[in-house]
């Protein structure tokens, strides 16, 4: 969105800041509100099923590699910082550096997805073993899809940031993707908590 919403403050070499959030940023925030409700729906389902259980939780026979996925959880959390770093660099007109940080973020996101793929192929239960299995695959699957979309969005960002010139629109886009990425990250922390740690 190229609406003139940004006002550059004084000298061009001072960091690019906005006197109010960009329109795309506001739209992204609003949309993330709906995403929050989407995942709330999934969590509600998970907790309903958990409340209905007859035996232990997770049901017997369900084993997950808490440590390995824990490590990739930390990687995903760190990717939020690398993404924020990219925003920071772009605000200071260091576009090459910004691009590099985006690439780092993408790699971390892909690593997370890779771990998820390995995990899916390794676990001893399936989506039809029981309701826990169903929720495990549905929740990690839908979250994984969000991570994937984030990586795709970053790929588009790379194209958009390819040129030399800096326009407020591209910074707004970068910020919006970063909001989204933080969101996906926070959702994962909650998911990791309920799927891997909750007994």
């Amino acid at each position: 969105m190229t609406q003139a919403v940004a006002q550059r403050v004084a000298k061009p070499r001072e960091p690019l800041r906005f006197n109010k959030p960009s329109m795309l940023g506001v739209g992204t925030m609003v949309w993330l509100g709906s995403e929050l409700m989407f995942f709330s729906g999934l969590f509600a389902a998970y907790f309903t099923i958990r409340a209905n259980r007859t035996g232990s939780w997770p049901p017997p026979g369900i084993k997950l590699d808490v440590l390995q996925t824990g490590i990739f959880t930390i990687i995903l959390v760190m990717s939020s910082f690398t993404m924020q770093k990219a925003v920071f660099e772009a605000e200071h007109f260091r576009k090459r550096s910004a691009r590099a940080w985006i690439v780092v973020t993408m790699i971390m996101g892909l690593a997370f997805l890779g771990n998820q793929a390995i995990e899916w192929s390794r676990v001893t239960f399936s989506q039809s073993t029981n309701a826990y299995g169903s929720m495990f695959f549905i929740m990690t699957g839908l979250h994984g899809l969000h991570v994937l979309l984030g990586v795709v969005a970053m790929a588009f960002l790379m194209l958009r940031l390819a040129g030399k010139k800096t326009d407020p629109g591209e910074l707004a886009a970068l910020q919006s993707v970063s909001y989204y990425w933080h969101f996906v990250d926070v959702v994962w922390i909650a998911l990791y908590g309920v799927l891997f740690l909750l007994h």
Binding site: G33, M37, L42, A45, S128, M135, I138
Partner: peptide, 26 residues
């Protein structure tokens, strides 16, 4: 209200679809 309500329906529908086609037990 739409942003509050519809995503929950979407989630519910996805799970319904999974139950119908992927053998889940939601």
């Amino acid at each position: 209200l739409i942003l509050i309500a519809f995503p929950v329906l979407t989630a519910a529908l996805i799970m319904l679809y999974a139950d119908r086609h992927f053998g889940t037990h939601v």
